[in-house]
Amino acid sequence: MTADAEPVHRLAGLLRANGDTLVRRWVDTAVEELRGRSTGQELERDFREFYTALTPVVEETARGGAADLGELKSLLEEYSRTRVKQGFTPSETAVSVFSLKRVVFELTESDDDPKLFREVLAFSSLLDGLGLFTFEIYARAREEIINEQSEQLLELTTPVVKIWEGVLAVPLVGTLDSARTQVVMEKLLEALIETGSDQAIIDITGVLAVDTQVAQHLLKTVVAARLMGAECVVSGIRPQIAQTIVALGIEFGDIVTKASLADALRHALRREGVDVVRQAGRTG
């Protein structure tokens, strides 16, 4: 792939001949756009690598072939991801790509060869595409961070605790969505096995609202636990939630429900054969 064989591709030739100057100017322009948030040294290495990968693509495009953008895209992906972590906005990242256009325009603007003009136009739309690609990467990287965080939050907000030998409790707090309920329920069933518990209390005192799907998940969990040989009690159903459940027409069937976690615990202990007795002489 050399430009010499086909002298008609002027832009590719210019890019090759003026590589050093162009990269230096590109870096300067970008530094200026970013108002000193990146130093020239930081950018130069990335830009040079990108430029080296870009030149053969421009040649191929000028020849009318379908250029392979794989390497360029993976360079840009790495660059964009680092930028996300460093707290740059997506525009700032995209500007680093777009500023190469300006540098190349400056180099070719005094030339009125229409062929070169068309090549610059094609080059410009190539860079536009790549600039937009950094937006995509930016969005994707952010999404990954958000997913990671929501998973961590899920772990934090849904503890399964052993409150007595053979009795587990899951205090659910906040808004339950279908995905979260599902995760909690799987965790509860796993914990039954791990701790050898055959009773569980699902306390929903802290739950603000339930919808049909969430209620269904709760029901399914109770049935699944039963299949495994464990009994679940649902406690702390607040009046509004009780109304919702009735209004939605959800059958709680023969599932044991208790007003409070304390009632549920007493129920569980009785089933374990434990009697809780207040000692005589102590009042409180």
Partner: peptide, 15 residues
């Protein structure tokens, strides 16, 4: 019965 099996049976409609 394993948890995953129990969940699947419930979804399948077998209680």
């Amino acid at each position: 019965m394993r948890p995953a099996v129990a969940i699947t049976l419930v979804e399948l409609g077998l209680t």
